[in-house]
Amino acid sequence: MNNLFYCNRVKVRNKGRIDAPFRLSSRDTTIGRCFSFCPEEGVLPSGACQNVEVIFCSHTLGTFTEDLLLTVTGRPQPLTVTFRCVVPAIVVETPVLNFQRCFLDHRYEQKVQLTNTGPLPACYGVLDQEYEESPSLLIGSSTPTGMIRPHSSEEFPVFLLAKAVGLYASLCLAASSHPRSWEVCALWSVNHCFCPMGV
């Protein structure tokens, strides 16, 4: 999965009576090295405020907390700005799709239900499947992306198209996400494809 960039803003205000040179930085940790700032430093006049862009780029999945450091000249200890990343609580209510018997080159469709049990909105997307040059089974969705509101459920369709006779158990991957995190879940599809006998 490619790195994703997220940008937020920190408002810095000088309540003192003199100009305040400042610098915003992060700790030398795995997550801390994923941050950059614009501007990284500057001078804030007395009574003024300024927005500093905080840019975060990481391919690491999970929930974590990181403290950013705001150093002000003349202040013995830096101020801390806490950055939090959370993973939405997504439950796959339909982990297995049983298509049973299917005919060759006929498209079949079933619904998958996802529930967002957390307090934050989450979006989902069916990931592109990797196929061989001549795949025996095609799986996808006509509406591969969507949004789930907090404490609610959504359904999306998954279609199956068999290109060869056989018994299949295939894996379909879906990604659920909050704007600052991604989590991958799996959906299994089971079907028996056969070719009808001619008269």
Rank of each mutant, 00 (worst) to 15 (best):
H106G: 00
S141L: 05
L160Q: 05
Q129G: 12
V126E: 05
P157M: 04
H192D: 06
W188A: 12
R84N: 10
P95H: 06
N191C: 12
L24M: 11
F56H: 04
I18V: 11
E132V: 03
R9F: 13
E109Q: 09
C49D: 15
G74D: 08
C49I: 00
V112E: 02
I55L: 09
R84D: 06
P21K: 05
N8F: 14
L161D: 08
L160G: 02
T117H: 10
F99S: 05
R33G: 01
N2P: 09
R180H: 10
G125S: 14
I18E: 14
P135I: 03
D19N: 14
Q129C: 10
K11D: 04
C38F: 15
A175Q: 13
C193K: 03
A48M: 09
F22M: 06
L127V: 13
V158G: 07
T30N: 08
G198S: 07
C123K: 06
S36G: 05
P78L: 00
E154A: 15
C195W: 07
Y168A: 10
P78S: 07
I90E: 01
F83D: 01
F156E: 14
G16I: 01
V72Y: 06
Y168I: 04
G118A: 07
S25D: 07
F99L: 11
F22W: 14
I31G: 05
L167K: 08
I90L: 15
R84L: 02
G47M: 00
V126G: 02
